[in-house]
């Protein structure tokens, strides 16, 4: 159960108050009619599924009803930052991989009981 900092409410709130809305920063093409079917299909249907840093859009549905962005690590589920609609992330996969250079994490198998 996530604990999410709402950048509009200025505090952490329980996940139950939020709805996830998929990948962030998907912009609707300015001129849809100028898009090829393929371009339009990509806009509509294709999303990233990274292992690691991911930018997502959430809405504080039971709260201020504002949409905002979440930078989340898809392995650790750690939320690295949240930021308002229209803002850009300060933490990205690139900035993270530079910071962690050389700190390779070994991924061993585990027994899941």
């Amino acid at each position: 159960m996530f604990y999410i900092y709402c950048p509009y409410c200025g505090e952490h709130r329980e996940e139950e108050e939020f709805h996830p809305k998929g990948q962030a920063h998907i912009e609707r093409p300015k001129e849809p009619e100028a898009c090829s079917d393929e371009e339009w299909g990509n806009y509509l249907f294709f999303r990233d599924n990274p292992r690691g840093v991911h930018h997502e859009m959430w809405v504080h549905a039971v709260g201020c009803r504002k949409f905002f962005n979440v930078t989340r690590h898809t392995v650790s589920y750690e939320i690295l930052e949240t930021y308002k609609m229209g803002e850009q992330p300060s933490i990205t996969a690139d900035s993270q991989s530079q910071a962690r250079e050389g700190a390779a994490v070994s991924q061993q198998e585990g027994v899941r009981a």
Partner: peptide
């Protein structure tokens, strides 16, 4: 004052 979850309502 806050808006939040009440049981299964709000």
């Amino acid at each position: 004052g806050v808006t939040t979850v009440f049981g299964k309502a709000t």
